[in-house]
Amino acid sequence: MKVLDRVWLRQLLALAVVLALWEAAGQAGWLNPLYAPPPSRIAAALFELFSQGTIWSHIEATFGAALGGLVLGIVVGVALGAAAALIPFVAELLEPVMMMLNAVPRVVLAPLCIIWFGIGLGSKVALAFVLVTVLVFFTVYTGIKQVDRRLVERVRTLGGGRWTVLREVYLPFVTAWIMGNLKVAVGFAFTGAVVGEFVGASRGLGYLLSFAQSTYNSALMLALVFLIMGFVLAIFGAAGKLEKHLLRWR
């Protein structure tokens, strides 16, 4: 069949089959709705969230925390990574700290962030920030150390000074490394925001998840999981487009 030659169509069809089987199993009573509600109940929960309109403030809180942590994490991670790669003394100080932070399962920092920054937006931004900063630090640190020395020499022999080398060689090289890890960073930022909200918050998708868990509302919980998944996939798509545009030379 010509229509099934397209990959996305085959994937969509497979998804539809899984959902239909799931729905049929639920309707037939083979699945306990307390643990695995059928897709129709999940869709109804999702519809209810949007029709009441209350979801928007939660989405806004989660997005605010995730994007705030992402932007701050990238800015600070790039600055620290670049400083460590270019100044050996800074590397001596920062590398062990970042190694320790990298070794800790960073979500365990969530309760600490709540104590330090309260249950408001600050603690979620802080958690997302730590997750992203460590990732970006190592990306930039390793990236700069692997800059092709021949390119640096080439720009120097063409008459470029230190700033030109930074602009023409280091910046594009490091941008490529960051773009390669941007999707992971986005994932980390949302993990930080949602986990932070889950541990202690009055708003956000993580807070709603915690509420759904405490009321044993599996349909709401799965609706939220799919919603978060959808948002992250949409951001992945945008990040992918940006990567393709900025790294079109690859």
Binding site: D148, R150, L151, E153, R154, V155, T157, E168, V169, P172, A176, W249, R250
Partner: peptide, 14 residues
Amino acid sequence: IGILFQDDALLPWR
């Protein structure tokens, strides 16, 4: 004075 190395060393992003 110009120099040409064994590797062309062109900036790949340009």
